[in-house]
């Protein structure tokens, strides 16, 4: 039986999905903070939010890079 492969797939799925979700959620959260009217949040919060979205995008692209044989050989 291919238990090891099964575990690898489960692990890879978990790591990939959690990475994307954590980064994106942080982005959403920080955007929310930056958008608050009453409390004036420092400017860097918004940039941090953009950074999170950016990192999330890069994580996805890296995943695609790993998977498409044309790039990874």
């Amino acid at each position: 039986m291919k238990w090891l492969e099964l575990l690898t797939v489960a692990g890879a799925t978990l790591v990939a999905a959690v990475t994307v979700v954590v980064l994106y959620s942080l982005g959403v959260r920080l955007t929310a903070i930056a958008g608050d009217r009453q409390v004036t949040a420092p400017v860097w919060v918004r940039y941090l939010a953009y950074a999170c979205f950016g990192l999330c995008g890069i994580a996805v692209l890296f995943g695609l890079y790993l998977i498409i044989p044309y790039f990874s050989g």
């Binding site: 797939v9 890879a12 799925t13 978990l14 990939a16 999905a17 979700v21 995943g63 998977i67």
Partner: peptide, 19 residues
Amino acid sequence: FAAESSTASAILASSHLGF
């Protein structure tokens, strides 16, 4: 969002790792 991330990760991981 969470469901789709998991779906995409699972499909891509599984088809890439051969299971």
